[in-house]
Design a protein around this nucleic acid. Structure first.
Lengths: 244, 244
DNA sequence: CGTAGTATTGAAACGGATCAATATCTGTGG
DNA sequence: CCACAGATATTGATCCGTTTCAATACTACG
């Protein structure tokens, strides 16, 4: 459901949370790798919660990485601007995702809000010091980054496919999963533009458009509007969405 | 240069080391994010050094992740086997790289030695416990994993290009960088097969072959043999190797 | 309600995949 | 050390799908 209203005023902010598959081992039997309430409070103490409207630039590539961000609400994209003007979208960040980790003190990509967003912002060096003092909290971050690593590898697999329809199917399946918490109807929310999808999948805008048409004509998916999708033929869909 | 001979007998093994770009901030002014001698000893204490011949399988996907590995010598690849028989090579691991981090206690890919290799092998749960106790050591791992994340993103960008020659150029430039330490001549070492290169780049074997031909015909690179390359026209090469 | 950005659809061309034939390399055993 | 066999790599010809260019339709926002 949409978090309607400013409940924040009534009940205090529980603080940032992270989402990740258990990292090293399920052996230690931790079904929940999320942050403990204490850890969330700990992060909250050093974080600032900010609101940005859609299309705001959170930071630009090659600028000093002052803050690390944890998404609380909405979707952010990070991309690399190529000289041809082409934008190469590297990732979409959902609630509970961490982004803005620097390399050599500089941001690597540009981050921009896709929808209106709410973010926790933490001074990079404050976070570093906190993590260095608290191994348990740091371990959550390690899990999270490892999780991101897998997601990125998965994306590399998607882009490795040559057929446009298959790539789009994989992307929609991915969307379906990452938005599972906030799905109201059976519809999958597609917060980003076709153009964003295209540059994430390494396709032209036209190819994405044609791929959606094909999925609709084959009766596999219907697109009630440009920002939502509903799967009609689950079996066919899954078959497409599995890497060849 | 090549670590010839069994020096290990004379001077004791200094232990595993990691390679990564500084993670959060250069602010803390650490030119060397590598492990300290003490940390290497610490890892050495819980690690076993093993030797494997070329083509040995280190582990298989979907099997319990008993160990984490740190590469000491040689090259390992990890790949995903698709049902069509196609192999999708996800990454190549060089000395100082960590691999074998599990998801839910299982390996995600299959790892296989490309050349003869020497690896440090650490029990997954022993490593986890060690990291949980030592925040400073864990921080090195966090840096390392973040570094891997960037590498993977970079690969996704490579695969996103549509021209075969450009992809190959980027790959060779990548090889040049990651093998900088152990380059003897000016030649770049290409330890893996053309077929491995192809499935890493998301191209057919034939396309890779044609791409090498083109690079040679244009006088940009010469391939003295199938496992080495020499850049003749640096300027043209760099122009190709930059993402469009 | 209009306008600028966004998306769809069509036609043509380019480039990589595939199929096929041949060449080269590698490692093994004579 | 050489010869052979299986794996690996190169090269050619054709096909198919994506890109590109272009024209039109839609949508969102002021």
């Amino acid at each position: 459901m949409k978090l309607h209203g400013r409940k924040a005023e009534e009940s205090p902010d529980p603080g940032p949370s992270l989402r990740a598959a258990p990292f090293f081992a399920a052996v230690t039997s931790e079904p929940e790798p999320l942050l403990s309430p204490r850890q969330r409070q700990q992060l909250l103490a050093i974080a600032t919660r900010i609101k940005l409207s859609a299309r705001s630039v959170v930071y630009r590539e090659q600028t000093p990485a002052q803050w690390v961000f944890i998404n609380a609400e909405g979707v952010v994209k990070t991309f690399k601007e190529l000289r041809s003007g082409r934008r190469c979208v590297m990732s979409f960040w959902y609630p509970k995702d961490v982004f803005g980790l620097a390399s050599n003190g500089l941001y690597v990509r540009t981050a921009q809000a896709v929808t209106a967003v709410e973010l926790y912002r933490i001074e990079t060096d404050v976070l570093v010091e906190t993590l260095r003092r608290d191994a348990e909290l740091q371990f959550r971050f390690l899990c999270k980054v490892t999780h991101e690593l897998r997601e990125t590898q998965r994306q590399a697999i998607i882009v490795g496919r040559r057929d446009a329809v298959g790539r789009l199917a994989m992307f929609i399946r991915h969307l379906e999963r990452s938005s599972q918490d906030r799905r109201h109807s059976g519809d999958i929310d597609i917060p980003m533009s076709r153009s964003d999808v295209a540059s994430y999948l390494g396709l032209s805008l036209e190819s994405v458009s044609r791929a959606t048409s094909k999925l609709e004509k084959r009766g596999i998916i219907t697109f009630p509007d440009r920002h939502s999708a509903r799967i009609l033929d689950r079996q066919q869909f899954e078959r497409l969405a599995i890497p060849v």
